[in-house]
């Protein structure tokens, strides 16, 4: 039957165009946590004070009432008064948190939902201190080594330059994100610009290196021209070639 046919097609079309999409959303809500069950003038004065200080931040902000400290604040009328006062102040209360059973019922009468998850915003003091400590421990950009770097040792300057005052033995490795300076004979390997910085350079007061590398381009002692041996030199990249030059 043709009519049936049309209906069928209509149904198929409806299946192709979905009537809605469901997406997860995260957003920040402000939580207001009354510390006392006395909802008198002083409470609202203090609230107004707070709102005046940062009017933009709270305007139409989704707001949760945290009732943890006020288990006695449980009448529907009491809550309704509270919600209305908040709405007058351009706040948008939509839920309650840490509510007792009676409070949940009163809240749902007012159209507020009960929120059972979520973390309190102020982080615990201990965790905050840790974060500050981690920032302080960030190493200085330049790493300076004043002892000889022995065979088998690796010195890494992950963030900046590496300065070694003393000899670097054969079999030792120097790695730096930036430049490498060696005030002494360089007999080991030196890898500057380890993260790809092609402007990085290697300087040493006596070149006997096993390997020089800048941003991954390298030369071994075999391919380092012998005339630079034992001299005060710098190595740098020029036209994708590792060049070595004596320093005055």
């Amino acid at each position: 039957m043709p009519s049936n046919d049309t209906k069928d097609r209509g149904a198929r079309a409806a299946a192709d165009i979905r009537p809605f999409q469901i997406r997860g959303r995260f957003f920040t809500a402000v939580s207001l946590r009354p510390e006392s069950e006395q909802q008198d003038e002083s409470f609202f004065e203090a609230l107004d004070d707070q709102l005046r200080q940062t009017p933009q931040f709270f305007a139409n902000a989704p707001l949760i009432l945290d009732l943890e400290q006020v288990p006695g604040l449980n009448g529907t009328e009491v809550l309704r008064r509270m919600v209305e006062t908040l709405k007058q102040r351009n706040l948008a209360p939509f839920g309650v948190q840490n509510a007792s059973g009676e409070q949940v019922r009163a809240a749902s009468d007012l159209g507020l939902i009960n929120i059972t998850t979520g973390q309190d915003a102020p982080l615990k003091a201990e965790r905050r201190q840790k974060a500050i400590k981690a920032v302080r421990q960030t190493p200085a950009k330049t790493k300076t080594i004043t002892l000889p770097v022995r065979s088998g040792q690796t010195v890494i300057a992950d963030e900046g330059d590496l300065i070694v005052i003393g000899p670097v033995s054969s079999g030792a490795e120097l790695i730096a994100a930036g430049n490498i300076h060696v005030y002494g004979p360089l007999r080991g390997r030196a890898m500057a610009g380890a993260h790809g910085d092609e402007t990085a350079r290697v300087f040493c007061t006596r070149l006997e290196a096993e390997l020089l590398a800048i941003a991954g381009l390298y030369r071994t002692s075999e391919s380092l021209a012998p005339e630079y041996g034992l001299q005060n030199v710098q190595a740098f990249l020029k036209n994708e070639r590792l060049c070595v030059e004596t320093l005055g």
């Binding site: 770097v149 088998g152 040792q153 033995s169 054969s170």
Partner: peptide
């Protein structure tokens, strides 16, 4: 000499 150098590194670390 190279091995001794390695050992000196271990002594200091």
């Amino acid at each position: 000499v190279r091995d001794s150098d390695r050992v000196l590194g271990l002594l200091q670390s």
